[in-house]
Amino acid sequence: MKGKVVSYLAAKKYGFIQGDDGESYFLHFSELLDKKDEGKLVKGSMVHFDPTPTPKGLAAKAISLPLE
């Protein structure tokens, strides 16, 4: 699924993505496929991810940034 980063707290390594389906997904650095892309996780960045339901809500897994 595609989505847009709505927040990312680099110090805490987490944030949120708004998916194309309108839902909010929890984003964690550990799910970023290329850790070098962390600096690109800023508000408004477009990402691809696997939407995954968890006991705490919806989460983004296997997060990647589109090729530039």
Rank of each mutant, 00 (worst) to 15 (best):
F16Q: 04
G15K: 00
E23Q: 15
Y8P: 00
K12T: 10
A10R: 13
T54W: 05
L58A: 06
A11T: 12
Y25V: 02
D50K: 15
Q18M: 13
L9V: 15
H48M: 14
G44D: 07
K43N: 09
Y8H: 01
L9H: 14
I17M: 03
V42T: 11
L41V: 05
P55E: 11
L27T: 03
F16E: 05
H48A: 12
K2D: 06
L41S: 01
V42F: 10
E31R: 04
G39H: 14
K2Q: 11
D50R: 15
K4L: 12
K35G: 07
D34L: 06
Y8V: 07
I17W: 01
H28W: 06
Y14S: 05
A60F: 01
I63V: 13
P66T: 14
A62N: 15
Y14M: 07
L27G: 02
T54A: 07
Q18T: 10
F26N: 01
K43M: 09
S30Q: 08
K12G: 05
K13I: 03
Y14W: 12
P53A: 13
L32E: 00
L27A: 05
H48F: 14
Y14Q: 05
G3V: 02
V5Y: 02
S45C: 14
V47D: 01
H48T: 13
T54C: 08
V42D: 05
E23K: 14
K43P: 14
G3C: 03
L41D: 01
K43C: 09
S45W: 05
L67A: 12
H48G: 07
L9K: 12
G44P: 02
L9Y: 15
K12E: 07
D21Q: 03
A62C: 12
E31D: 10
D50M: 15
A59Q: 13
G15N: 00
P51W: 09
A59K: 14
G19S: 04
A60M: 00
T52R: 11
D37M: 10
D20S: 10
A62V: 06
G15Q: 00
G57H: 03
Y14K: 04
S45T: 15
I17D: 00
L65F: 14
P55C: 09
F29I: 10
D50Q: 15
T52W: 15
V6K: 13
P55N: 10
S24A: 09
G44H: 05
E68T: 13
L32W: 02
G44N: 06
S45E: 08
T54Q: 06
A62E: 07
T54R: 06
V42G: 07
K56E: 08
K40A: 07
P53H: 12
G44I: 02
H28Y: 06
D34H: 09
P55V: 10
T52K: 11
P55L: 09
L33P: 03
K56F: 13
Y25R: 00
V47Q: 00
T52S: 13
L58Q: 07
K12H: 10
K36Q: 11
K61Q: 08
G19C: 02
G3P: 00
K4V: 14
L9F: 15
G39Q: 12
K43R: 11
K35A: 10
S30T: 11
H28A: 12
K43W: 09
G57Y: 04
L65R: 05
E38M: 06
H48K: 12
F49Y: 05
I63P: 02
L58H: 07
V6N: 06
K35T: 08
E23I: 11
G15M: 02
L9G: 08
G44F: 04
K43H: 10
L9Q: 12
P53F: 13
G22A: 04
G15L: 02
K12W: 09
G3K: 00
P53M: 14
M1R: 06
G44L: 03
E68K: 09
S30A: 09
L27V: 05
H48V: 14
S24E: 09
V47G: 01
H28G: 06
H28Q: 07
E23T: 07
L33S: 06
S7V: 15
D37H: 08
V47T: 04
S30Y: 09
D34N: 13
Y25K: 01
P66K: 13
T54M: 07
L33D: 04
S7L: 14
S7H: 11
V47N: 00
K40S: 08
G3T: 00
D20R: 06
E38N: 04
M1H: 06
F16Y: 08
Y8E: 00
V42W: 10
S45H: 09
D34F: 06
D50I: 15
K12R: 12
G57R: 03
A62S: 13
M46Y: 12
D37Y: 07
A59E: 08
G44M: 04
S45M: 15
K2W: 12
F26T: 04
A62M: 10
K4I: 15
K61L: 10
Y25W: 02
T52P: 01
F16S: 04
H48C: 14
F29C: 06
